[in-house]
Design a binder for these strands. Sequence first.
DNA 1: ATTATATATGAATACATGTTCATATGTTTA
DNA 2: TAAACATATGAACATGTATTCATATATAAT
Lengths: 125, 125
Amino acid sequence: MSTEEISSSLKDCCDVTIIHDDIVSDIQKKQLSLEKGNDLALLFQALSDPTRVRIIYTLIQAEVCVCDLAAILEMSQSSISHQLRNLRALRLVKHRKVGRMVYYSIDDEHVESLMRIGLQHISHM
Amino acid sequence: MSTEEISSSLKDCCDVTIIHDDIVSDIQKKQLSLEKGNDLALLFQALSDPTRVRIIYTLIQAEVCVCDLAAILEMSQSSISHQLRNLRALRLVKHRKVGRMVYYSIDDEHVESLMRIGLQHISHM
DNA sequence: ATTATATATGAATACATGTTCATATGTTTA
DNA sequence: TAAACATATGAACATGTATTCATATATAAT
């Protein structure tokens, strides 16, 4: 494609200029749906907070009750409970009630892989 | 430091009750450092927004310039530039300048793996 | 030179989010 | 039954963040 042809193919779409018409329409066909993009972002968002990262890292090693978790991470029970609620809503952790205590553990086959790859990444920084 | 000393010091400092002294001190030794927890969270945070997810998904497929990216994702150029700035700060993407245009591409060996596993996860939801 | 174009960026705004505090719920112990 | 305990949760507050708008910068075209 010559420079002239590229220039003449310039076109406006939602206030943006398209430089490479063919590439744009080609890649647009292979794009993630908005829904999948949102779902993926929600998954990674679950891991985007230091407290949740440490909760998950702990639960990968063992099933732990809430107050032990709070002790291990040296944070308030309320804060831990709130975060566990988030993780539970995404079905990344599951819980088991024993008397008045509640034991949490990982409920997802992918979380551990994500953590492992993430750790590889930060060790290569 | 004995188990008793650890638990009593935790009780003093953070208002949590420890149920299983031995488990707590055992797991605490294997805990992520605060720094690594923060770094991991920062990495996942980069993927925790739908716009950034879609940017990365696009760049995995091809090197694309800013305005094409804006066209593909149907978002403003400014918004895309701001997000690319974030991703660049984390060294997840790199850029190549050609004239007045700037081409972006993935600059991390782990991002693609994370996306692949993430996609597996959401397809199993 | 002047104008148009591609990208970057600071400021402002609206919205999301993590923690704390107070308290509710359900369970165990005295 | 009463008190202690483990956990959950709503509200409030402070902080973080994504987008838009206006504009700056650098390059290309006329």
